[in-house]
Structure formats: C-alpha cells, structure tokens
Amino acid sequence: MLKTALLLVNFMIAMALLLSLWRLIQGPSLADRILALDTLYINSIALIILLGMYMGSPLYFEAALLIALLGFVSTAALCKYLLRGDIIE
C-alpha cells in the first residue's frame, strides 16, 4: 500500500515539475522565471526524498540536502542580481 502511494505521489510531483518547467520557459517576466526555478528545485527535492523512501536508501537524503543548499544560494543570488544588477558588492 505504501509503495503504491509513493508511486502516485511521485507521478504528481513529476507533473508539478513539468508545470514549473513550462512556467520557467513561458514566464512573462524575470521574477516569474526565478520563482519557477525556485519551485522547480523544491519539487526536485521532494521527488528525490520520495525516491529515497521508495528505495530505502539514506544516500538520497544527502543528495536532497545538497540540492536544497545549492538551490537556496542560487535563488538568493538571482534575486540580488534582479534587485541591484550585481551579485558581489
């Protein structure tokens, strides 16, 4: 029963990834694209964690943590670039 629920949730998150990718490509403004990129990495973290639960391996959780750290730094850098025009002061 748990494996079936995990597969169903994986499918739903994969659909959310596709919709975020569509917004990243189609986004009308730069802020919408940054928000879509943020949503894309959060959904990928959820997908990797669910895959780790499905496979029963703790290695996937470390990969999800690494993606979370890189995603946060990249979102902060892109937002700073959007607001000020440069990343390093």
Rank of each mutant, 00 (worst) to 15 (best):
residue 24 L to S: 00
residue 81 Y to W: 14
residue 32 D to H: 09
residue 4 T to Y: 04
residue 74 S to D: 04
residue 44 S to T: 15
residue 27 G to D: 00
residue 89 E to F: 06
residue 88 I to F: 15
residue 59 L to E: 11
residue 47 L to I: 03
residue 28 P to V: 00
residue 46 A to K: 05
residue 5 A to K: 15
residue 66 L to V: 00
residue 31 A to S: 11
residue 61 F to I: 11
residue 3 K to L: 10
residue 47 L to C: 01
residue 59 L to H: 11
residue 43 N to G: 00
residue 79 C to Q: 14
residue 63 A to P: 00
residue 72 F to K: 13
residue 52 G to R: 09
residue 84 R to P: 02
residue 9 V to Y: 12
residue 62 E to S: 13
residue 31 A to V: 15
residue 80 K to G: 00
residue 16 A to N: 05
residue 32 D to L: 07
residue 32 D to Q: 06
residue 5 A to M: 12
residue 32 D to G: 09
residue 14 A to W: 02
residue 26 Q to M: 07
residue 68 A to W: 09
residue 16 A to I: 05
residue 76 A to K: 13
residue 83 L to Q: 09
residue 45 I to K: 02
residue 74 S to V: 06
residue 69 L to E: 06
residue 49 I to H: 01
residue 34 I to S: 12
residue 17 L to W: 00
residue 18 L to P: 08
residue 63 A to F: 03
residue 63 A to W: 04
residue 23 R to W: 01
residue 23 R to Y: 03
residue 64 A to D: 04
residue 50 L to S: 08
residue 29 S to F: 09
residue 36 A to Q: 09
residue 71 G to C: 04
residue 81 Y to T: 13
residue 41 Y to V: 01
residue 54 Y to C: 04
residue 51 L to H: 00
residue 66 L to K: 08
residue 19 L to F: 15
residue 72 F to L: 14
residue 58 P to M: 00
